[in-house]
Computed example of a mutant assay.
Amino acid sequence: MREFPHLMAAADTATLLIHCPDRPGLVHDVTGFIFAHRGNIIDLQQHIDPTLDAFFMRLEWSLENFTLEKEEIAPRLQPLARRHDMQLRLHFASQKKRVALFVTKESHCLYDLLARHESGDLPVEIPLIVGNHDTLRSAADRFGIPFYHFPITKENKQEQEAAQIELLKKERVDTVVLARYMQIISPAMIAAFPNQILNIHHSFLPAFVGAKPYHQAHARGVKIIGATSHYVTADLDEGPIVHQDVMRVSHEDSVQDLVRLGRDLEKNVLAKALWWHVRDQVLVYQNKTVVFE
C-alpha cells in the first residue's frame, strides 16, 4: 500500500482492456475493484458479441487517490481474472509507448507522423527510424531521430531482420509502424511483436491486395478508393483491421491521380489507427478488432 497516494501526479491514469466469456456481474466486479481502492473511473466502454458469447471492456481511471501502487494492480486483478476467465491488458498513461517507424522510399506517412509527434498531437516516444533504403535519412535528421539503414536482399533478409529485432529490443520498442515499408515481415518479427506491428495498405482491404492496388483499381474503373490500417500477421494483408476510410473518384482520374489522392487517405488512416493503438483503445480478438472510440 502507498502511504501518500496524493503524491502521484493527478494526470496519470490506468487503462484496463478486458475480454472474456459473457456472463452476469462482469461490470459490477471490475468497477467494484476500482471503487474498493478509491479509483475514480473517467471512461468506461463495453461491447458484447452475442455470436461469440464474448464480452469486451475498456476502463480508464485516475490514479490520483488510488490506494495501490502501479506494480500491485496487475497481481491484485488476477483472482478476478481467474474467476471470470478474463484476458487483461493494463497500461499507464505516464508510460508512453516507444514507436519505431519503418520506411522505404515514400515519405508522406513518415512526415505526417513526425509532424504530429513534434506538435504534441501524438503522445509517443520515437527512438528510431528504420529504412531498407537510405532515401529518408534526411527526414530523420530534420527531426533529430536516429536513422538505421538495413539493406535487405533475399540472401540477407533473415540475418537483417534478426539484427532489427535485436535493435528494437535494445531500444525498448513496443510498437512498430510500417509507414509504407515495402517489405514482407517475417514470422520471427511478427512473433516478437504480436499485434504490435501496424501497417498501412493503400487499398480498402480485402479488395486489391498486393503491391499496386491503385493500378488494379483504375483498371477496374472503381468509383471509390480506400486505405486500410491493420496489424501484421503471417497472412499477407489479412491481419486484424484497425481503421479504414474511402474517397470518391471518377473515370476522369488517372492512376497518378489515384496515387496522389490516396496518399492523403493513407496518412490519415494510419495516424488515426496509431492514435487508437497508443491510447489502448484497440482490442484484438480472433483476427478482428474492437475499437473503443
Rank of each mutant, 00 (worst) to 15 (best):
D112G: 00
D174K: 10
A192V: 06
G32E: 13
V232L: 07
Q256S: 15
D43R: 14
D253I: 00
F66L: 09
L7V: 02
Q196M: 10
Q183I: 03
V291F: 05
T233H: 06
E71M: 15
D29C: 13
S229V: 02
V284N: 03
D264P: 03
L7N: 08
G144H: 08
A54H: 09
Q256M: 15
T153A: 15
F143N: 08
L136W: 00
R263S: 04
R172N: 13
A115T: 03
Q286D: 14
A273D: 12
Q46S: 06
R2M: 09
P151Y: 07
F33C: 09
H202L: 14
I41L: 10
M86F: 04
V232E: 05
R279S: 11
V278D: 13
A14F: 11
M86E: 12
L52Y: 01
L63Y: 01
K169L: 15
Q216V: 09
I225R: 06
E60L: 13
M182S: 10
S229K: 07
M182C: 05
P240M: 04
L283I: 00
N199C: 09
R58Q: 14
A74R: 14
Y148A: 12
F193Q: 11
L59A: 11
A271G: 10
T67I: 10
P187W: 05
L258F: 03
L77Y: 00
P206I: 06
G131Y: 06
V124G: 03
V124H: 00
K97W: 04
E252D: 13
L198C: 06
A140N: 08
R38E: 15
Q160T: 03
R279L: 13
V290Q: 09
W61Y: 04
A139D: 13
R116Y: 01
Q95V: 07
F92C: 02
Q158H: 14
R2S: 06
G120C: 11
I42E: 14
V259D: 13
D237F: 01
L59N: 04
K154I: 08
P79I: 05
F208R: 06
P127I: 08
M189P: 07
I145M: 13
L236Q: 00
P187F: 03
L283E: 03
D12E: 15
G239C: 02
E161H: 01
H28K: 08
L114Q: 00
A234Y: 02
L90E: 08
A273C: 13
R98A: 11
N195L: 10
K70N: 12
P146L: 15
T51R: 14
H230A: 02
R180G: 07
A14Q: 13
S138T: 03
T51W: 09
F150E: 10
F92H: 00
H149I: 04
S229D: 12
P187Y: 01
R83S: 15
V278E: 13
E266F: 04
S203V: 03
S229H: 04
H230M: 05
V278M: 13
T175Q: 11
Q46G: 01
Y285R: 02
D121C: 12
Y148F: 15
H243M: 11
L80E: 10
D53S: 15
V291P: 10
L274H: 07
S229Y: 03
